[in-house]
Computed example of a mutant assay.
Amino acid sequence: MKRIAIFASGSGSNAEKICDYFLGRTDVEVSLILTNNPEAGVIKRSRRLHIPVVVFDRKTFYESERILQLLQNDGIDFIVLAGFMMLIPQFLVDGYPDKIVNIHPALLPKHGGKGMYGHFVHEAVVTAKDTQSGITIHFVNERYDEGNIIFQATCEVLPTDSPEDVATKVQVLEHVHYPRVVDETILKAGIE
Rank of each mutant, 00 (worst) to 15 (best):
R48Y: 12
R48H: 03
L49R: 13
H50I: 15
H50R: 12
V54I: 12
V54H: 13
V55K: 10
V55S: 12
V55Y: 13
D57K: 07
D57W: 02
R58W: 04
K59M: 06
K59G: 14
K59T: 15
T60P: 14
F61G: 02
F61L: 14
E63Q: 15
E65C: 13
L68I: 12
Q69I: 09
Q69T: 13
Q69R: 15
Q69N: 06
Q69L: 02
L71V: 11
L71F: 05
L71Y: 01
Q72L: 09
Q72N: 11
N73L: 11
D74Q: 13
G75L: 13
D77L: 04
F78Q: 03
F78T: 03
F78D: 01
F78S: 03
I79H: 05
L81R: 14
L81D: 05
G83C: 09
G83Y: 07
F84M: 03
F84P: 06
M85R: 13
M85K: 05
M86D: 14
L87G: 07
I88Q: 04
I88R: 06
Q90W: 01
Q90S: 12
F91E: 08
F91W: 08
F91T: 12
F91H: 14
F91P: 10
L92T: 08
V93W: 01
D94W: 03
D94M: 02
D94C: 06
D94R: 08
Y96L: 02
